[in-house]
Each structure stands twice: as structure tokens, then as C-alpha cells.
Design a protein around this nucleic acid. Structure first.
Lengths: 151, 151
DNA sequence: TGCTCCATTGATAACTGTTATCGAACGCGA
DNA sequence: TCGCGTTCGATAACAGTTATCAATGGAGCA
């Protein structure tokens, strides 16, 4: 969990500029500062915490701008959200162990029966101090309806 | 995704009653109807949709009651939430592919480097029509700080 | 360089999902 | 049946997120 090197930051920012140009996105000051903050932070920051960081450089920036840009970044694959189903609470009705397939377009969740998968194998142990209770695999892709050429 | 059989429903409701007694939870009418609705639904219902279902049998029920009971059910392991990190948006700063370890107590998310894991193997193909783009494994358990006996 | 157009910004209202509060009602053991 | 502590229902409050809209400012072109 060490700090990302300055060289890597610059490389990612440069790639970011290219992607923006390529995608027809304006290269605004706010946009770049937000992206840079994101790359320089570590872990899994919330929009609020990115806002806090960016505000130190652009005190007048609006939280809405941060939200809008994060959404833009995600839409263009410049970053990823930790979880596709972060929105609202959903509960399981299937009490048997199983995995999930989440459609990246419609966000619907499909159960994948456990035995479809060979047991997951760790090559080494988890970091010291972490005790594992269970795991499940999340598959991402297009579901039947969203994958149809007609859509 | 076929309907759960009536026999299975009754079995789960009966187990539910036992668990409630065992946990010192009152067996209220609302509680049982909510649990029954949950078991009879399929997929990954939202509190709102369970509320809609329950309301057909107890028109005067409050949405808050549904929320409170779902939380109780989850706390007692009577059902599970689909995702431990459904709350707020979080974005990745780590652009390399990786997996996640989520602490069931503090909900913190830790990155697990991809190569710690042997590639996941499917025993059979995914159901027809699903196209896979990527997958990641979510490990659940206690993190270093939450697993300490001192806590 | 200056101009024009459209994307983006900032401020803020609105919205959604969820939780807190509190008096009334009810399950449960005595 | 009684009494206590849990749960319920109604609703206010809250957090996170999105929509709205006038003002601003990139980016291509004359």
C-alpha cells in the first residue's frame, strides 16, 4: 500500500490527457486536478474525500463538479468503481452459497451456482492478521438481454 | 431461477422461528410476514420491493418496520446482503487488476494483488447469452484490527 | 488572435434511500 | 392476567447523489 511514484502519476496523467482528447472531452483545469488527486490518493476514496483533496487546490470547486467528472471518468474507463452494486441495499433470497454475475449495462445481478466453479486457490497466504470467513466471485459482463445485437 | 417450493418455504420459516426464539427476538406477525415474503421472492429484492409485497398482507405496515427487520435478519444471519459495500460510491486508485478483501465488521476494503490467486476455473460454461468481460474475487472476513482479541 | 459554439462549471434545489425519534401497541415470561 | 421490554407505525431528519440553469471557458476555425 505504498505511495505511487511521481513518475507513475505523470504517466497516468499523460495517458489521461490523451484519452480525453481521443474521447472528445475538454481538458479543463478542474478535470485534470480531480484526476490527479484520484491517482495520488490510495485505497478506495469516496467522492467526498476526493472533493476535500481537490478543494485544497481549487477552493471554489463544486462538489457537483467532482461527481460529474468521476462519472465521466468511469464512463470512459479512466477509473473503475469498486462495486457495480453500491447503490441500494439488496438482500439474498437464495440461501445456498453462490456467486454473482453482474451486467455492466443494466446492473442486474444473476446468481451463479457455486459448483459451476472450481474452488478458488490461493498461491500464498493472505496477509498476516486477516482471517477469511468466505469468498465469492463476481463476474462482470453483458447479460443475455444487454448482449443482444438488437439492443 | 424457478420458484422455491412451498415445502422449502415452510422449512425456512420454521427454522426462522427457532432462530428467533434462540436469539431472544420476539416473534411478531410483521416479522414473520416479512421473512416469508423474502423467502418467497426470488433474486435480490430491495427493501422497497419487499415492502410492496408485505403490504399486500399487512396494508398498515410501515416501511421503517421492513428496514428494521431486514437489518435484524442480516445481523442474525437469517439472510445476507448481496454486497457488503452497497453504501456510497468508491473509486479505485489501483489501476492494476486485483481482488478485494472486505472486513465484515468495519467494512474496510483491502486490495489483494491478482497474482496471489490462481486463475479461477469454470467447470462448465456460463449460461447461454452471457458474455464475460472480467471477474474479481471478494474475500470476506476480519481485518487485522478487527480480528485482534483486544477489540 | 479573436470569435463562436458547445461542453463544462458552480450554486443550489430536489430526490432517493435510509435511519432516528417517540409515543402506542404487543409478545412473552411470571 | 399483569407488567416489562421489544417492536411497531408515523414521520422527521439525514446522507449521498443528481438535476437545473445561468455563467464561464476550452477548442476549432476564420
Amino acid at each position: 500500500m505504498e505511495q505511487i511514484s511521481q513518475v507513475d502519476v505523470e504517466a497516468r496523467v499523460e495517458r489521461f490527457r490523451q484519452e480525453c482528447r481521443h474521447a472528445g472531452l475538454s481538458l479543463t483545469h478542474q478535470r485534470e486536478i480531480i484526476f490527479r488527486a484520484l491517482v495520488e490518493m490510495h485505497g478506495h476514496p469516496s467522492p467526498e474525500s476526493i472533493y476535500g483533496e481537490v478543494k485544497r487546490q481549487i477552493p471554489a470547486i463544486s462538489l457537483a463538479t467532482v461527481y460529474k467528472n468521476l462519472k465521466t471518468f468511469i464512463d470512459h474507463g479512466l477509473t473503475r468503481e469498486v462495486s457495480l452494486h453500491h447503490g441500494a441495499l439488496r438482500v439474498e433470497t437464495n440461501s445456498a452459497p453462490h456467486h454473482h454475475f453482474v451486467c455492466v449495462r443494466c446492473k442486474e445481478i444473476f446468481d451463479i451456482e457455486e459448483e459451476l466453479l472450481a474452488p478458488v486457490e490461493l498461491r500464498r497466504k493472505l496477509p498476516e492478521g486477516f482471517s477469511l470467513q468466505r469468498y465469492s466471485v463476481e463476474f462482470q459482463g453483458l447479460c443475455r438481454s444487454c448482449g443482444e445485437p438488437s439492443s
